[in-house]
């Protein structure tokens, strides 16, 4: 089985092709380039180097979120269009779980993405199966750290945004906070495929309805709902 993996959920970009459990090619970049400009050319390059045609792809794994709204939409739009028109199954994988699976650690792993204004998208996982112990959520960094404090054990932080918040994290958790090395801090599409392979393949008729998991409604909608409640 030949898998194409695509992750544009946040600033980094990753594309990989895995054939029967072997990574044929993986491209990971953290160049802050626009995903709309680089994603399709990167997919083209990966397939070309692997000497494959689009029709050779048997399944597509895409990072479904959370992350940057625009980034998610670019990856998901490309993935669902490819899957629909090539008639191949599409599997969505959590961007946080994929990132957490980078960490080589047996205890609690926390993956996070900056969601601006002091907030993060974050989750914490434990064990080989990456069982969530803090479910994926949009939360203030401080609230997240308070939850992690109650764990009373070291926490492995992974991701470039965790690195960015190292000072705040250490201020709260002190020596209990551990940080993954830079080489493990970027999302990898081969990891996405690894996780996708554990899932049953969804039916083709689910592709049309595949959308990113934003984990937040838009501001306009939140305000509208507030107005409706006031009116009641």
């Amino acid at each position: 089985m030949i898998w194409l993996g695509i992750d544009t959920s946040n600033a980094p970009l990753s594309v990989a092709i895995v054939k029967d459990g072997q990574v044929l090619i993986e491209i990971v970049q953290n160049l802050k380039l626009t995903h709309s400009v680089s994603c399709m050319p990167t997919i083209e390059e990966a397939l070309k180097k692997a000497n494959l045609k689009p029709a050779d792809i048997d399944g597509i794994a895409v990072s479904e979120g959370p992350g940057s709204y625009t980034g998610l939409r670019i990856g998901v739009t490309i993935a669902k269009t490819l899957a629909w028109t090539l008639k191949k199954p599409l599997v969505g994988v959590s961007s946080l779980k994929s990132l957490a699976s980078n960490a080589i650690y047996s205890g609690t792993i926390c993956a996070m993405f900056d969601a601006r204004r002091g907030n993060v998208y974050a989750a914490a996982f434990q064990g080989d199966e990456l069982t969530p112990v803090i479910p994926e959520q949009h939360v203030s960094l401080q609230e997240l750290l308070e939850k992690l404090e109650t764990f009373n054990e070291p926490i492995m932080f992974v991701g470039i945004d965790a690195q960015k918040f190292e000072e705040e994290i250490r201020a709260k958790l002190g020596d209990k906070a551990k940080f993954s090395p830079a080489s493990l801090n970027l999302p990898r599409a081969s990891k996405l495929i690894e996780l996708a392979e554990k899932e049953p393949l969804p039916a083709l008729d689910t592709i049309h309805h595949f959308v990113p998991k934003y984990h937040r409604i838009s501001e306009a909608e939140a305000n509208w709902i507030k107005e409706q409640k006031k009116g009641q």
């Binding site: 709309s36 997919i43 625009t70 269009t81 490819l82």
Partner: peptide, 19 residues
């Protein structure tokens, strides 16, 4: 609207590339 344009553009590119 840039976010709106990007959906059509990336779908068009993925479709064109596939075929």
């Amino acid at each position: 609207l840039v976010g709106a344009l990007l959906v059509g553009i990336n779908a068009a590119k993925a479709f064109a590339f596939s075929h």
